[in-house]
Amino acid sequence: MNRPYGALAEFKSAAEIFHACEKVRDAQYRRWDAHTPFPVHGLDRAMGLPRSKLPIFVCIAGLTGVAAGMTMQWWMSAVDYRVIIAAKPFFSWQAFIPVTFEVMILFSAACAVFGMLFINRLPQWHHSLLKSERFRRASDDRFFICIEAQDAKFDPEQTVQFLKGLGAASVELVEE
């Protein structure tokens, strides 16, 4: 067998994986993840996940968008190509609000989408878990926990035994 990617445990219900996650969290594992066919309420807390940092980045991107949108229009209308429109001042901030708003939305939405992809390390052409036949049911009716081999506490035998002890229907080592 090649180097293992991690130990994959299969559970049959949301309640089972919920309590299993609490025990994996309490066993101080760091590099692991849960895969479920639908969102399970409270699973993030059961896994001990911190809140995403994405909102902070989106907020910064939005404020940048406001500054960029207003500066762009100031430059175009009041500096670079001055045209008198409806006898209004060159820098008529009122008229620039809708575009400024839209640039804010554009920057925030782009930051949210691409930031999410970056944080999740997506796109990936391949993922080792897809080698597992069982794992295909993660999008249907089964719940999985995978503890990765990179975790400092990972041990091919002990981790598998630990997962079996959590009530997993099956546990397997997945190759890198």
Binding site: A86, Q94, A95, I97
Partner: peptide, 12 residues
């Protein structure tokens, strides 16, 4: 509030 102000300001 801005919509009301903006349209009136623009049409003048």
């Amino acid at each position: 509030a801005f919509s009301q102000y903006f349209l009136i300001w623009y049409a003048n």
